[in-house]
């Protein structure tokens, strides 16, 4: 379950930021997780609970922005919604496409007590 490594990386990243701002706890964390990022949300929720135990994120409120998949067809040039990596262009049926969004895996912001 790679979601656990992902969750643990988030804890590291948040701890680093908190230390930099001399905060002892994090109240809120906002994440971007794209729909094509390969993160399974059920597994992620489970992993999250494990990973934040006894860390600076233990009591943090977690906000997740799911970013929709969008792709650019390299054949006909149109942009389309991509729900799966194997989706083809709805206009010309080509599978040659460039992903524009949906791969995000990011810590966007943190809220620290003042």
């Amino acid at each position: 379950m790679h979601e656990l490594s992902i969750a643990m990386s988030i804890v590291d990243l948040a701890a680093e930021q908190a230390a930099k701002h001399e905060a002892l706890e994090i109240e809120e964390i906002e994440l971007d997780i794209g729909c094509l990022s390969g993160v399974e949300m059920d597994s992620f929720d489970f992993a999250w609970r494990q990973a934040v135990k006894r860390t600076i994120l233990e009591n943090a409120i977690r906000k997740v922005n799911r970013i929709e998949g969008k792709a650019h067809c390299l054949e006909c040039g149109c942009n389309f919604d991509m729900h799966h990596l194997y989706d083809s262009c709805p206009d010309c049926n080509s599978h040659f496409s460039e992903i524009l969004s949906g791969k995000e895996l990011k810590v966007r912001s943190l809220v620290l007590p003042d």
Partner: peptide
């Protein structure tokens, strides 16, 4: 509200 918001904008797989 007396809280500090940090814009982190960092890729989670950045370190890897």
């Amino acid at each position: 509200k007396g809280k500090k918001v940090i814009d982190v904008e960092q890729d989670i797989l950045h370190e890897n």
